[in-house]
Simulated assay, not measured.
Amino acid sequence: MTTGDGDMELYDLEVVVDRIEGRSVCGMAVGDRFTVTGSNELRIPGDTHFCLYALSAALPLIPAKQRPLPACDWLERDSEVACPDPEERLVMRIERGALRSMDSSELT
């Protein structure tokens, strides 16, 4: 779905805790999530938190996953990212939502 009349397109993203294969020491649970909309808006639903270290693992992938990519690009096929804590082994899934048109002249 594309909305708006801009000159570029970005996907809305949802980053979801898919599984925790170790012991959860940061208070995260399967299903915890945050969303990224527009070019820079991060939202954590309700009165919850998201581990800073898990967030830092996902952030470098966000700009690429927001953009349409060639089918052969590994980021088009892969959607999982792991928290760097080896004891926790928390795995997040990056899901794409709506594809939105934006006007690049309104961004910095």
Rank of each mutant, 00 (worst) to 15 (best):
M1G: 13
M1S: 14
T2N: 13
D5A: 12
G6E: 05
G6Q: 06
G6M: 04
D7S: 05
D7F: 12
M8D: 07
M8Y: 10
L10T: 04
L10C: 08
D12H: 11
D12S: 15
D12G: 06
D12T: 11
L13E: 00
L13N: 04
E14Q: 14
V15P: 00
V16Y: 04
V16P: 00
R19S: 11
I20C: 02
E21S: 13
E21N: 13
G22M: 08
G22P: 00
R23K: 15
S24F: 02
V25S: 09
V25N: 12
V25I: 13
C26E: 01
C26K: 06
C26P: 02
G27F: 07
M28H: 03
M28N: 01
A29F: 08
V30R: 08
V30D: 02
G31M: 03
D32L: 02
D32A: 02
R33Y: 01
R33H: 05
R33D: 00
F34E: 01
T35V: 06
T35N: 09
T35G: 06
T37L: 03
G38N: 05
N40F: 13
N40D: 15
R43T: 14
P45M: 10
G46K: 13
D47Q: 14
D47K: 15
T48D: 11
H49N: 09
F50A: 00
C51P: 03
C51W: 07
L52W: 12
A54Q: 05
S56K: 13
S56Q: 11
S56V: 06
S56I: 03
A58I: 09
A58G: 03
L61I: 08
I62H: 05
P63M: 06
P63G: 03
A64Q: 10
Q66G: 02
Q66A: 01
Q66Y: 03
R67P: 01
R67N: 08
R67L: 09
P68T: 07
P68C: 04
L69M: 14
P70D: 10
C72Q: 13
C72G: 11
W74G: 09
W74V: 12
L75E: 08
L75A: 11
L75I: 11
L75H: 14
E76M: 11
E76R: 12
E76W: 13
R77P: 00
R77C: 03
S79A: 15
S79T: 10
S79M: 12
E80A: 07
E80M: 11
A82D: 07
D85K: 05
P86H: 10
E87L: 12
E87V: 11
E87F: 11
E88V: 08
E88W: 06
R89M: 04
R89H: 09
R89A: 05
M92W: 00
M92R: 03
M92Q: 03
R93E: 01
R93N: 03
R93A: 06
R93L: 06
R93K: 13
R93M: 05
G97P: 05
G97R: 10
A98E: 15
R100N: 07
R100S: 02
R100K: 15
R100C: 06
S101P: 08
M102V: 04
M102N: 01
S105D: 09
S105V: 07
E106W: 10
E106P: 02
L107K: 12
L107N: 11
T108L: 15
